[in-house]
Design a protein around this nucleic acid. Structure first.
Length: 235
DNA sequence: AACCAGGACGTGA
DNA sequence: TCACGTCATGGT
């Protein structure tokens, strides 16, 4: 079973996920499905504004090794402090207030520095940045860089997270802890480079991970041999 | 009351 | 390169 077949199976099982979730303040019109209010399943027209692009990038940093529910609180605090509209608004927020706002997301000492670096970068960022430029920003590693590219700038780059590695390892597609780039190439080599496909697939893998690959013993309840009609077409 | 969460970075080998 | 410790809060 190849990766594309796995994608279709997950999509049939869970349905469209509607990533990346956005808070309501940014003027979007999110539907109220999924476990949080900011998701917009089936609507791939996001982000619509630079505000939303920036919010996605901020969320990508805040969610590092952190539950999204915690990130939501931090994002709400930032929005209330009017520091989430654009890079400058965040840079205008005093450091202690920034740390207070993002405290629910954990690692507030590190992440306040990361967000400062991110906002500084975004003030001098003309549309899709290169991956390397993002990696040069303090606090942005490979996964966060790819998440920003894929969800904020609609660049078809696959995001590899811990859940994805666990799943692939459990299914024998990975043998050990292969480096990030190797795992990513697996997806890039066997899938059409389509932004919506990459967004959905990664989101579906996270949903799968949350349900079945969180605590040991790992293992899902998916019937991987079941065939679904090719109802969805991407790429 | 441990354990986990949509990682990144610094360090030493 | 690479394995390992550190960073922090909130939910289960």
């Amino acid at each position: 079973m190849d990766l594309l077949a796995i994608f279709h199976r997950l999509l049939a099982e869970f349905g469209p996920q509607g990533w990346w979730p956005l808070t309501a303040h940014s003027g979007s019109n999110p539907t109220k499905r999924g476990s949080h209010s900011g998701y917009h399943p089936g609507d791939y027209s996001f982000p619509k504004t630079q505000e939303e692009q920036f919010e996605i990038a901020v969320g990508a940093v805040l969610t590092q090794n952190t539950a999204w529910t915690n990130v939501e609180m931090a994002l709400r605090n930032l929005a209330d402090a009017k520091a989430l509209h654009n890079p400058k608004s965040l840079l205008n927020l005093p450091k202690d207030q920034l740390q207070k706002a993002i405290r629910p997301a954990g690692y507030f000492n590190q992440k306040s520095e990361y967000l400062h670096a991110l906002a500084t970068f975004f003030t001098t960022c003309n549309e899709p940045p290169t991956r390397q430029k993002l990696l040069d920003v303090r606090g942005i590693g490979e996964e966060t860089a790819d998440a920003i590219l894929l969800y904020a700038f609609s660049v078809p780059t696959f995001v590899i997270d811990a859940y994805t590695k666990r799943f692939l390892l459990h299914r024998g597609i990975l043998s050990g802890n292969e480096p990030y780039k190797i795992v990513q190439q697996l997806f890039h080599d066997s899938l059409p480079h389509n932004t919506v496909l990459f967004q959905e697939f990664h989101a579906l893998l996270v949903e799968l991970g949350k349900r079945y690959y969180s605590k040991k013993p790992y293992g899902d309840h998916i019937d991987w041999d079941k065939k679904d009609g090719e109802n969805y077409r991407f790429g």
